[in-house]
Design a protein around this nucleic acid. Sequence first.
DNA 1: GTTGTTTGGTTGTCTATACAACCTACATAA
DNA 2: TTATGTAGGTTGTATAGACAACCAAACAAC
Lengths: 258, 258
Amino acid sequence: MNQPVPKYYKIYEELLNEIRSGKYQEKDLFPSDTELVKKYNVSRGTVREAVKLLFQQGYLIREQGKGTFVTYRKIHQDPDRLIGFTELMQQHNIKPSAKIIEKEITLPNANIRHLMRLENEQKAVRLVRLRFGDDQPLIIERSYFNYDLFEPIYDMDLEENSIFELLHKFTETRLGDAHQKIEAVSAGLEEHQLLGVALRTPLLLIKRLIKTTDGLIFQFSEDAYRSDRINFSTKTVPYHSDNDLQPLPLDLSDDEWF
Amino acid sequence: MNQPVPKYYKIYEELLNEIRSGKYQEKDLFPSDTELVKKYNVSRGTVREAVKLLFQQGYLIREQGKGTFVTYRKIHQDPDRLIGFTELMQQHNIKPSAKIIEKEITLPNANIRHLMRLENEQKAVRLVRLRFGDDQPLIIERSYFNYDLFEPIYDMDLEENSIFELLHKFTETRLGDAHQKIEAVSAGLEEHQLLGVALRTPLLLIKRLIKTTDGLIFQFSEDAYRSDRINFSTKTVPYHSDNDLQPLPLDLSDDEWF
DNA sequence: GTTGTTTGGTTGTCTATACAACCTACATAA
DNA sequence: TTATGTAGGTTGTATAGACAACCAAACAAC
């Protein structure tokens, strides 16, 4: 008796797809609660739960007395498929690509093993990729994957495809929560050569640990971003019935911030 | 007929105070829904609304079938008084202090005026502070404040007190949402001198724009963080009924990340 | 024309109830 | 002793209904 998918979540998914497909025009009206109640044959509380998710993720704006409106934000991220570089590029109409610098099956050192909760004999995949946007190098991605989970897609084309998508399509593992840390570091020789920035250029370094829904650690990565091309932005919203901090980070645009 | 404060929000505030005051022990139990229903004489939906807020902000963990538990996270931030450096320090038992490097009433340049939506004749307060934790310099804070809003606390002690707290205590302006951008920059001469880091050390630069609830822009600031002492961390949680991305950013600890 | 008023629709809050899924602890049976 | 199941509490989901706050547009009164 596994936990079934709740109704409000299915409705949320369906509405999200509709929004993504462009069914509703920018800042145009979105169906009201009562309309959705009729359409899905559920109670108002249920549709509000679904709409609340969309609202919290920045897809909708609700105004008391007026209605609900769609907003196609430049910044929004899908918490499901987290941290999608590929998607981010697509949102900005930038052609994403990647080049594999290093790819091997190894037995990582004690630090990494401890970080990834790997047993002594468990292997990992060491992958270093250079990621491009419109053929300009943007990110160096140095990561370790749990080999047991990664094995099914190890031989696939990791240059053209998003790893998260491959994983989703061809395996059963589902990604869970992730922790990230952001630091500033100095470009060394490899960064200089690969990213084409001057030595000692400041870069953003994101350390990330991604778990599966089973609690296993899927990936540990250290990604170095060209800070002149990619920023991280967050939006904080204060008190209001059902919001919290807005989603978040990745951003390419520099408009209105000079 | 201003919008009254909803019940669930008052309950939220009261519970938050109880948690902050240490009434509940770490990972100890928190009153169940039904207990809170009796205590506050409201319906279960209402208490769940309040508890959900606490949950979303990382104060509580709910486990189906078991109960609700308090978590005194090292990382958590209060969206109301946002980005509290002072509070962050207190959470880590570090003595916060500040030194004013520059403080004047000026007429900022066109860029800043545009960014802060200032009319041509409107003045701003230019404030540069160096912030310490346990007497070690951690952050250079270069900011502009809307003078009209800042005037009441201009002459107060800005070295010992949190500006946000002063603002809250002595004025009517309430802070609204904030936008932030994170970049990596290189330490220049002033950073070298003030933060005591080597020239060209990479630093984290946070640009921030804080609005009031009235939609005015209260502050624009550029804060340079010593990346070796302060990190930003985020936690991403995947699908689950009522979460979204977890609150936030600031973090001091380096445990378990080496 | 301008100003107030009404009306209908929308989101926001709250209540009361019910059942499902899950956990723990205890009692019972093998 | 070891399973096994039962009971009661907890959170999660869902329903149905009610009223408040708010908005826009239509209408009425001046």
